[in-house]
Nucleic acid binder design. Structure first.
Length: 444
RNA sequence: GCGGCAUUAGCUCAGUAGGUUAGAGCGCCAGAUUGUGGAUCUGGAGGUCGUGGGUUCGAGACCCACAUGCCGCCCCA
């Protein structure tokens, strides 16, 4: 039994070669799409000064943050002065505040890095996980929201997803709805938490929560919940919301934003969903989330946060972003077998077996094949029976084994065995690469 | 943070009402006429039964605590 000591820390994982291949594949697709939308790469340190992060994510976030004790003689104080980043948005806000004069007027960046949360691990949920963020800073235009939704959707599409939905809502609309329903300001957060659970616990469940937390009277609650019935297309939902909100100025601003956003996007992509709330406290405008059927949580989410950078800079810079969750994407893709087959290909195109006194010849042939662009594994021990060497290559599904025996030595000849067909031929060492390459390309 | 279930060889799991040296399948390593794999046969290595306490003449089995994992709640990517 692996003693507990060799397991990675709770909620964290080692990535074996196959895992890394999958991760790198997904990351490369996402990156490529983001680049095509004109986003530039950014990386920031794993740790931030603790005051940079504290208070940006609400009470829950403060608790789930991994804090780092002061080092050296100060360690005994038990005081933390650093923390591992909790998301990529707050570090971005810090960067923008710090380098304002060096960055373009509209800063579009993507960032694919790990973040850490001291959460309880669960399906698709870890304590160290990657976020793939895109953000646009410096513009209040709804074109930004549309572009971000479009880029994220396209990335998922490129990965092979076709059944996802982008749920779209707006903080201001929520404010309008809750005000119009007569819910007191200080009960708004409680009401939103309950509403967010609508698709999980149903309308009755939400009503019970309302009652339990004294959010709103039962009668008004029912009227409110009627708003959230999933019936109707986006236009009908928006009309319904507008009737309910009436003349609430803030709420109407939100509705106008939503109308503008969906007008820029194909109608099939986005679904207005008034029950979407999202936990992070820094959102101020549109909020969105991407969902697929067989995943309880979301595959990603984001929104507009016009005030966050102001917390660092002293003057507001509008911003909007979206974050895809790498491990959730990988989880669903693995379950659905969505990874391309050649990702799971063998570690090498050909293995050079080493035979008795021909080690140097084998190494020089290997070098030659590598120069031709082939991936060549050299069996790392000599004087091992040829059968065992071939068996080793076969188990690792390497398609070819090459070796130089007594009869070939000194003649510039190499035996090349195709492990799939079992056939083998004696070739001039110059021909080997050609034969292997032909087969490798045929398979790919 | 709360509740439930789990933890025995590298992997998946058996282990009868607590009783001598803990098992299987797969995998791994090797052998079956000195240069040929996948099939078959044979053999081998590998576990202080998650950790620490306790009950007992005796515990992998029972009790407690802790750790880790899974499923709900909470929250979230």
């Amino acid at each position: 039994m692996p003693s507990a000591k060799t397991q990675p820390a709770r909620g964290m994982r080692d990535f074996l070669p196959e895992d890394v291949r999958k991760r790198e594949y997904v990351i490369s697709v996402i990156k490529e799409v983001y680049e095509r939308y004109g986003f530039e790469p950014l990386e920031t340190p794993a740790a931030e000064n603790i005051e940079t992060l504290m208070g940006k994510y609400g009470e829950e976030g403060n608790q789930l943050m991994f804090k780092i004790l002061k080092r050296g003689v100060h360690e005994g104080t038990g005081e933390a002065d650093l923390a591992l980043r909790y998301d990529l948005t707050v570090p971005l806000a810090r960067v923008v505040a710090e380098y304002r004069d060096k960055l373009p007027k509209f800063f579009k960046r993507y960032q694919i890095q790990p973040v850490w949360r001291a959460d309880r691990p669960a399906r698709g949920r870890y304590r160290e996980f990657y976020q793939c963020d895109v953000d646009v800073l410096g513009s209040r235009s709804m074109i930004v929201e549309a572009e971000i939704i479009s880029a994220s959707s396209e990335a998922l599409g490129k990965l092979g997803f076709s059944d996802f939905v982008v749920r779209l809502n707006h903080r201001k609309v929520l404010t309008g709805i809750l005000d119009a329903a007569g819910i007191a300001q200080e009960k708004h957060v409680t009401a939103l938490i309950a509403l967010d659970k609508l698709d999980k616990i149903g309308a009755d469940g939400v009503l019970r929560e309302f009652e339990a937390r004294e959010v709103v009277a039962a009668e008004a609650g029912k009227e409110l919940l009627a708003l959230f019935e999933p019936s109707g297309d986006n236009e009908e939902i928006l009309a319904r919301l507008e009737r309910f909100i009436g003349s609430h100025v803030i709420g109407l601003e939100g509705l106008a934003d939503l109308r503008e956003i969906i007008s820029y996007l194909p109608s099939s992509v986005v679904r207005i969903d008034p029950s979407l709330a999202r936990g992070l406290t820094y959102y101020t405008g549109a909020i969105m989330e991407i969902q697929v059927e067989d995943l309880a949580g979301s595959m990603g989410g984001g929104g507009r946060y016009d005030n966050l950078i102001g917390m660092f800079l002293g003057r507001d810079i509008p911003a909007c972003g979206f974050s895809l969750g790498l491990e959730r994407i990988i989880l669903v893709m693995s379950e659905r077998n969505m990874f391309p087959v050649n990702l799971l290909r063998s570690p090498a195109d050909v293995m050079m077996a080493v035979w008795r006194d021909a080690v140097e010849d084998a190494l020089s042939v290997a070098a030659e094949l590598r120069r031709q662009g082939l991936r060549v594994d050299v069996y790392p021990e000599r004087d091992v029976k040829l059968g065992n060497q071939i068996s080793y290559a076969s188990k690792r599904s390497i398609p070819f084994v090459a070796f130089i025996g007594e009869e070939e030595r000194g003649k510039g000849l190499v035996v090349l065995k195709n492990l799939k067909t079992g056939e083998q031929e004696i070739l001039d060492r110059g021909e080997v690469a050609h034969v292997v390459l032909r087969e490798v390309r045929r398979v790919e």
